[in-house]
């Protein structure tokens, strides 16, 4: 139950809260969109993508890890913060190898939609063209690390919903990679299944099914007709097994 007494304001608008809410929990429930990638309402905070950066009490904080305290005044939709989010998004692009024009998640991808939403026109930073191996060993699923933004959502979904612990993030710094937890390091040697919740939460195109590819036509994709800031917190995986209702 929300409690107005616990409420906060986001860009001057009152947002009710529940005890234990983070800023993004409260915003999400109230339909206020704060850009995010690693946050998912089912899987708790992670704080890695930094896209939900807001300003509270004169400090930049991640909305997904910052508790909503009564009377808190949060700035989100300001030019200054949008500029920061744009740079963060551009860094995510140059950290991978993203080729949106041919990606089957184009139009469904949160990273792409966020970039459009922030008005991203170029990479700004020099591309790093990292070498990241594709793991196509699994019969049903393909892991394309070129597109992985290391949001940890598949890790959390596999741990907390599927109970399989299929994934983890291995390596350090710029060498960090999404790794299947198997002796061979290959997806085929895990218990991963296309029915798993973890197979449906990727916000980009890093985890792809090996069937029905490109089945969703242009015009029927989530972000084809409406920008992500208007769609808000509805996600491409909402209709997936175990997904939250739109």
């Amino acid at each position: 139950m929300t409690d107005q007494a616990l409420g906060i304001t986001i860009d001057g608008a009152a947002v009710p809260c529940q005890a234990g809410d983070t800023v993004i929990d409260a915003a999400h429930r109230a339909g206020v969109y704060i850009p995010h990638l690693c946050f998912h309402p089912e899987f708790g905070p992670h704080g890695s993508c930094r896209l939900c950066m807001v300003k509270a009490g004169g400090r930049y904080v991640a909305a997904c890890t910052t508790p909503a305290t009564p009377g808190m005044s949060v700035e989100s939709d300001t030019a200054e913060i949008k500029e920061l989010r744009l740079r963060i998004t551009q860094m995510l692009f140059v950290d991978g190898n993203h080729f949106c024009p041919a990606c089957e998640q184009s139009g469904q991808c949160q990273l792409q939609a966020t970039a459009y939403g922030l008005g991203m026109q170029d990479l700004h930073f020099s591309p790093s063209y990292p070498k990241k191996a594709v793991d196509a060993s699994h019969d049903e699923m393909l892991l394309d690390r070129d597109r992985c933004i290391q949001c940890n959502l598949c890790v959390r979904a596999s741990d907390r919903v599927d109970g399989k612990h299929v994934f983890s993030l291995g390596g350090r710094g710029i060498e960090t990679r999404l790794m299947p937890n198997s002796a061979s390091g290959l997806l085929r040697d895990t218990e991963f299944s296309a029915e798993d919740r973890a197979a449906h939460v990727c916000p980009v195109g890093a985890l792809l099914f090996k069937h029905d590819n490109y089945a969703r036509p242009i015009g029927r994709r989530l972000y084809d007709r409406t920008s992500i800031d208007r769609i808000g917190n509805r996600r491409a995986d909402d209709a997936a097994p175990g997904g939250s209702a739109p």
């Binding site: 024009p101 184009s106 029905d212 590819n213 490109y214 089945a215 036509p217 242009i218 015009g219 029927r220």
Partner: peptide, 18 residues
């Protein structure tokens, strides 16, 4: 048929998507 005048997306393995 393909959703766009240039670089549409319609051909799938084994057929068409709409």
């Amino acid at each position: 048929i393909s959703g766009k005048k240039i670089h549409g997306v319609v051909v799938m393995p084994g057929g068409m998507n709409k």
